[in-house]
């Protein structure tokens, strides 16, 4: 019954049982947060740590995290590893194939700003939040499994604080055009990339 005490609920006792009354938010958010299925999607070094997190010692299943091989069945995309310009359109396509509500964890330094590949690299996309909105960044090169699990717990807390039926207040893309309020992938003088638009590599070449 300890669990019941933690629930923001009103329990009315009647003979042979009881009625539990609580908010819709609480029920739906907890259902969402405790069964996050992530996409089995490894790009580089971080994918090995992602595999280690899912394996024997760290046991990702404890958090309700189970991998699915197809984007159609997933709630969470863990971008594990360096994203190159050649791969970036595919990742955006995968993100768009996921059903709503969807969340993104950017794992490792490469996905935040290029990480060790920031300098001197001509082919790495410096930050995945230039193409898809990111909810949680997990730092490290690569992050330890504990760090990744901490990120997932942080994401679950984020989900639990959401209001059902209201548009999610999320950090969004890094570059927002103030005039049109649309996410910007490239500089305004070279063209806009709008959501739900598949980016071709030639458009990605003029990153700001």
């Amino acid at each position: 019954m300890d669990l019941i005490k933690k629930i923001p609920a009103y329990v009315e006792r009647i003979p042979n049982g009881g009625i539990l009354m609580t908010g819709l938010d609480w029920v739906l958010n907890n259902a969402k947060a405790s069964s996050m299925w992530y996409m089995l999607f490894g790009l580089a070094c971080c994918a090995i740590e992602l595999m280690a997190t899912g394996a024997s010692r760290y046991d990702f299943d404890r958090l309700g995290m189970i991998f699915r091989a197809t984007p159609r069945q997933t709630d969470l995309m863990i971008v594990a590893g360096t994203l190159t310009l050649k791969m970036a359109p595919r990742v955006k396509l995968l993100y768009e194939q996921m059903p709503d509500p969807k969340y993104v964890i950017a794992m490792g330094g490469c996905t935040m700003h290029g990480g060790p590949f920031y300098h001197d690299s001509y082919s790495v996309l410096k930050g995945v939040d230039k193409i898809i909105p990111v909810d949680i960044h997990v730092a490290g090169c690569p992050p330890r499994p504990e760090a990744l699990m901490n990120g997932c717990i942080a994401l679950q807390d984020l989900i639990r604080g959401e209001k059902v039926g209201r548009k999610r207040d999320r950090p969004g893309l890094r570059h927002i055009d103030p005039a049109t309020n649309l996410p910007l992938l490239v500089r305004p003088d070279t063209g806009l990339i709008r959501p739900n638009q598949i980016i071709m590599p030639d458009q990605l070449r003029v990153l700001s």
Binding site: L43, A44, C45, G81, T82, T84, K86, M87, R90, P116, F117, H119, D120, S121, Y122, S123, V124
Partner: peptide, 25 residues
């Protein structure tokens, strides 16, 4: 080429010691 991270180009602009972490990747 989907993971071509230009490691060989990066090695050209680092000192001999600084290249070692790049070879990790």
């Amino acid at each position: 080429g989907y993971l071509h991270r230009s490691i060989e180009k990066m090695a050209e602009n680092r000192t001999f010691t600084q290249v070692i972490p790049v070879t990790d990747r």
